[in-house]
Design a protein around this nucleic acid. Sequence first.
DNA 1: TTGTATGCGTTATCAT
DNA 2: ATGATAACGCATACAA
Lengths: 351, 351
Amino acid sequence: MARDTEKATLVDVARVAGVSLATASRAMSTPQLVRPATLAKVLKAVQWLGYLPDGAARALASRRSRTVGAVVPTLDNPIFASSTQALQRELGESGYQLLIASHEYDAGRELAVTQALLERGVDALALVGTDHVPAVWTLLAGCRRPYVLTWSLDEGGHHPGIGIDNREAMARVARHLHDIGHREFAVISGHTAHNDRARARLAGVRAALLGRGIELAASRVVETDYSVEAARTALRALARLRPRPTAIVCGNDVLAQGAMAEAHALGLAVPADLSVTGFDDLALVASAPPGLTSVRIPAAEIGQRTARYLLARLAGVAAPDRTELPVELVVRGSTGPPPAAASRARARPPR
Amino acid sequence: MARDTEKATLVDVARVAGVSLATASRAMSTPQLVRPATLAKVLKAVQWLGYLPDGAARALASRRSRTVGAVVPTLDNPIFASSTQALQRELGESGYQLLIASHEYDAGRELAVTQALLERGVDALALVGTDHVPAVWTLLAGCRRPYVLTWSLDEGGHHPGIGIDNREAMARVARHLHDIGHREFAVISGHTAHNDRARARLAGVRAALLGRGIELAASRVVETDYSVEAARTALRALARLRPRPTAIVCGNDVLAQGAMAEAHALGLAVPADLSVTGFDDLALVASAPPGLTSVRIPAAEIGQRTARYLLARLAGVAAPDRTELPVELVVRGSTGPPPAAASRARARPPR
DNA sequence: TTGTATGCGTTATCAT
DNA sequence: ATGATAACGCATACAA
């Protein structure tokens, strides 16, 4: 099949097929414009030579790279892994490849990788969140390519976005916990600097509780890394508070998992002694103990919609510039008596 | 800063800076070859014009794209997310971008995406595993670019690889479980077709048990999707076996998580009634109940080493073609009496 | 439907 | 240290 070891070019294909370079090119890119017989000849030559198109040359000549860029904080968070996976899949079905860059929640690196993707010639760009340094906005405005912000929607509505209402979702969680009797709350949050999702979620809890006349003291909020170990440490600290919180609201699944693990280690039953609430749950809810409250986020759908939006824009088709996806409040299993109520029933003096 | 709205090219930069195209090019790629004063002029022009290099043109002329490709089954598995994240990070520090493609355990798609990456002009390639269709091997041999197989090492030692001994790792788990008293085993495995990791892990359990005189019946092995829900279903089936298995060995963390969840739902205590064993643990061990046995895999290190190997090859430096990373057997907490022994102590008639 | 000729934006070779 | 210029491999306007 492979005739020799040198890299074959379209010129070689054309020569072997006995057609012109232009015809060979058309056979590859727009087969419907060449006579079936000639197409066959070209294809045979391609096979024979083991010809692979050169993407760089293609991109240079056509001014399109058939590549889309994604800037994410990290793939190490299941929600980004999941949405990115969906994005990649959907794009692949239309012949696009995904170029991924992560910045690990570092604003400087985000600028650098965004620029790197643009230089690589991505045809479109998807970024996570609405928190970006001015230089990133400058790049986006200057590059004249479709882009979309994911996971969060910007307040002003000035940028295309596909996401959820993080704030309201978390507020619903807090209100639910209050409804079933909880009065002592604490929050384990991700770092809120340069992270609009974490900020919105925390704000959601704050606002909801304030609406019920509860003010969340600073000592009841721990900002920490998104890691199981960090969350365990956080829970240990929160468990020492008096009155002890009965409801721990966690900024995402990793934190909730750590919190639950540490609660068990401390001999606290979840949710009997302590109610832990997750967010982002992909696997969490499926494997959590009954009574756990959580929010089910459509991660894969965000990726899919992101792909569809960008593909539409790349095809020159109009597409809605703003899509808010619904989230679902999930209370797993029947809880028996509300944890907080139960906890109060056998109340002990706060020390 | 940005002078106008048109895309600036190096020619523009050269003109504005009052130097030749060649000098402008050198200023960008090999600054040490131009006089500091001229360099400054060029850099000023770059700023002024908001110039961004064109990667396609660069790649075409230099025959290098500064891009590395990774072919993974899916990002939705935490181990691949983690190793890919590390790979990306390490490559980024050397100015390379990662082009990711996933095939979702479909051999046909793997070939397609591998070819797509090659066409995109990746300078090097990392693939997961040793199971590949002939056409993929043909591509790898023909493209004359560095590549490396990750997670598994091939038997013949014919391909560069960075991975672990999946088979031996799982065998150690099985031997440990036998040592602490288990006699009734069952396995929840990923699909073994086109997945050498799953095959090796299952083979490891089989071989280890055979070494102890135990044959693993077909009814005690369930092959299933890598999902929590699928694992729950699998555990439900296994829990109905008589004699009931006391040790459930899971092919990876997702499966273990599902198995534990379902065990709880069935009212079985883990690990008192049922010992669940994970693999791949990233967060699993940190949040698992005491007594859980697992294997700690160096996912991030695999990504890091993969990057280093490829970077070395790209730099023309020699590098070891085969790296086997150690895995760690982890038994969390003290277990009290061996679960199996305890289970036998209050044995009930197998029906 | 097919062929001819030009240009895409950069690197690299050769002078100077 | 800098400048002129020829590739790089393909797409595409235009001609036939």
